[in-house]
């Protein structure tokens, strides 16, 4: 199969079940809301080393936020509810509570259609040292924590839902610049979609990994089959003209969200055709035994 003349390999991306939440950060200006969100989602590329995978989902206009100020919605993904709660509390406390003018709200409701409750301001409130106050407004509890610029307003709970993490595809190109440009276009297309984040730097990963290592202490290590410099040394998956491979990883709230994002991303990456230098789209998997979600590339694009 070819898309715009670019070969689509007959393989599949393998993704995992995760626990996710959405929070909404508002501030006096879009800039400060974004600052808090970028800080909160910094160092959150992979659960392997960061405990959580997180990213900015969208910028929100004042009419889309609970308190009518400019905001940003953030999605966080972890391997378990406990991990998610721990990371959310830590990041909310260190990155949002500290950031001037911000307020923090749940972006997913609890209840039959929503998720299980997840503490947000429930313990952060103790930063108030007894001066914290709660307000129950329209059935939702908020904490008001006195800080030096006034009050940090933080909803008591968010909710966690089942989600999908690790949807991916690989861009194989004749030049690094071509792979990078294709990935940038793909990232732009994927970030326009709701319910997904691309947790890696700029949405792109250069260090695709495999499970395990020759070193006992390492849970993951470089995916040598796709490293151009190891061609001729290992069992390489790269054709002779391929000089660079980059990967895009996407986490989404549902299977359909990840599928849609992969489709949009691959379409954008292939838009320039083979003349752009992009020759092949592949995907990362572990033989299909580890992840609950499989995304056969040809089926996703069909």
């Amino acid at each position: 199969m070819h898309l715009n003349g670019v070969e689509i390999e007959d393989t599949f991306a393998e993704a995992f079940g995760m626990q996710a939440t959405r929070v909404i950060i508002t501030a006096v200006s879009p800039r400060w809301a974004r600052t808090a969100a970028e800080t909160m989602t910094g160092f959150a590329t992979s659960v392997i080393g960061c405990g959580v995978e997180a990213g900015i989902e969208a910028e929100l206009a004042p009419r889309q936020t609970p308190d009518g100020r400019p905001g940003v919605s953030v999605l966080l993904f972890a391997m378990s509810g406990d991990d998610l709660a721990r990371q959310l509390e830590r990041r909310a406390g260190q990155c949002v509570l500290t950031c001037p003018t911000t307020a923090l709200f749940a972006g997913i409701g609890t209840g039959p259609d929503g998720g299980k409750p997840l503490p947000l301001g429930q313990r952060l409130r103790f930063f108030g040292d007894g001066h914290q106050a709660s307000k129950l407004i329209d059935g939702r509890r908020y904490w008001r924590i006195p800080v030096m610029d006034g009050e940090f307003l933080c909803e008591e709970r968010s909710a966690r839902v089942k989600a999908v993490g690790g949807g991916n595809f690989l861009v194989l190109a004749t030049r690094l610049e071509a792979a990078l440009a294709a990935c940038e276009a793909a990232v732009a297309a994927m970030r326009r979609r709701p319910n997904v984040v691309l947790p890696f730097p700029g949405g792109v990963v250069r260090s695709g990994s495999k499970v395990g290592s020759k070193y006992k202490a390492l849970p993951a290590s470089t995916n040598e089959a796709y490293c151009p410099t190891l061609r001729g040394l290992v069992d390489s998956r790269l054709a002779p003209e391929i000089r660079a491979v980059l990967e895009i990883v996407v986490n989404g709230l549902t299977d359909a969200d990840v599928r849609g994002a992969l489709r949009a991303g691959i379409g954008a990456a292939c838009a320039g055709g083979p003349e752009s230098g992009v020759r092949r789209i592949s995907a990362g998997n572990y033989g299909g035994r580890l992840g609950q979600f499989h995304y056969p590339l040809r089926e996703v694009l069909a």
């Binding site: 609970p66 308190d67 009518g68 100020r69 307020a103 307000k135 407004i137 329209d138 908020y142 008001r144 006034g150 009050e151 307003l153």
Partner: peptide, 13 residues
Amino acid sequence: AWRPGFLELLVPV
């Protein structure tokens, strides 16, 4: 004089 953030949630109610 001051304007706390929670008023933006409460006043609409």
